[in-house]
């Protein structure tokens, strides 16, 4: 997918199995978009704020703030999302306080199936929909550092499930625009981060199928942590030569890297076969720590890959 197409959307989801690099990719995309002059909102849906840790900045909270030039960020804690929603519904402040301060309220909210997810989805829509005085959108692009695929699927599905369940009334009317946004290929893309390994790769195929079944548009599959590629035959010759010279320990290190790369090839191929041309490969960075510098490097790599096509 071309960069211009990709960044012309309004809402980019970044999901994938646990620990595959969702937050890494989401921040990198935000950096890229901001660099091309967009005002970006990065939404984190996670009980612990990872974005702040990556960037070495104070905790990201429910209220958005500018964390880098033209990049705003907020963290959706579903408890606050539920509260905020209720607040919007209750006309009088004193009622709101009485309801929400009640211990039983939380339990009740848990009992209402999907309320957490619905209000989280609602908050994402609400932020996307914010306007300036002149009617233009407040943010040019919203990027969601989404939860892992299982929970993310619930978030993507909840508007549709709600509409099907309640059928009419205010909730249906409020949910319809969320569903419209999520299913609109002009505005929304669900992007998946995958490692070139067996389980993440097969889960990616399954998840993509499930997203399609919701009529929600799929974007790019980011294959993360790709090891360097080497010519196997030449590597064998070289290893032999080094081993003969008593450098077995060097060979051991090199071959652990080479073998991993060879193993990955199969899964890179599977992912490419299924998702090309919407595939972006991100190399494994052999760095002891992961900071802003590495994120910029990844952003640059994504930029090059997407510009080539």
């Amino acid at each position: 997918m071309q960069k211009s197409d990709f960044f012309s959307k309004r809402l980019l989801w970044v999901t994938g199995k646990g620990g595959v690099g969702k937050t890494t990719v989401a921040i990198s995309l935000a950096l890229l978009a901001a660099e091309s002059g967009k005002r970006v909102l990065l939404i984190e849906v996670s009980p612990t704020s990872r974005i702040s840790r990556f960037l070495g900045i104070p905790e990201i909270v429910y209220k958005e703030r500018e964390i880098l030039p033209d990049i705003f960020a907020l963290n959706i804690d579903p408890r606050y999302a539920v509260e905020e929603y209720m607040k919007l519904q209750l006309k009088f402040r004193f009622l709101y306080n009485r309801v929400l301060k009640n211990k039983l309220f939380r339990i009740f909210a848990t009992a209402l199936p999907g309320l957490d997810d619905l209000t989280t989805a609602g908050k994402i829509w609400y932020m996307e929909n914010l306007k300036r005085k002149d009617g233009s959108p407040l943010f040019d692009l919203v990027i969601v550092d989404a939860p892992a695929t299982g929970h993310c699927f619930n978030l993507l599905r909840v508007p549709r499930a709600t509409i099907e369940t309640v059928k009419f009334g205010p909730i249906k009317n409020q949910t319809q625009p969320i569903q419209d946004l999520f299913t609109d290929p002009e505005r929304t893309l669900v992007n998946i981060v995958a490692l070139p390994e067996e389980m993440p790769a097969s889960e990616t195929l399954e998840f993509a199928e499930k997203v399609r079944s919701l009529s929600i548009p799929l974007g790019v599959v980011f294959i993360n942590g790709v090891y360097p590629e080497v010519d196997e035959e030449r590597f064998m010759v070289l290893s032999q030569k080094l081993a003969n010279e008593g450098m077995e320990d060097v060979v051991e290190i090199l071959s652990s890297i080479e073998k991993k790369g060879t193993m990955q090839k199969k899964y890179v191929k599977i992912l490419e076969e299924n998702f090309a041309p919407n595939v972006v490969k991100i190399p494994f960075l052999f760095t002891p720590s992961f900071t802003r510098e590495e994120l910029i490097r990844i952003a640059t790599i994504i930029n090059v890959e997407m510009s080539v096509g």
Binding site: Q89, L90, L95, V99, N102, F105, G169
Partner: peptide, 27 residues
């Protein structure tokens, strides 16, 4: 509990049409 919970129930009923409340109750 008057006020707090009652208005919460009214609210939920208003937005969902009461069905959910009945299911919660049954559960």
């Amino acid at each position: 509990f008057r006020g707090g919970i009652e208005s919460l129930f009214m609210l939920v009923e208003r937005v969902t049409g009461g069905e959910i409340l009945r299911e919660v109750s049954e559960f």
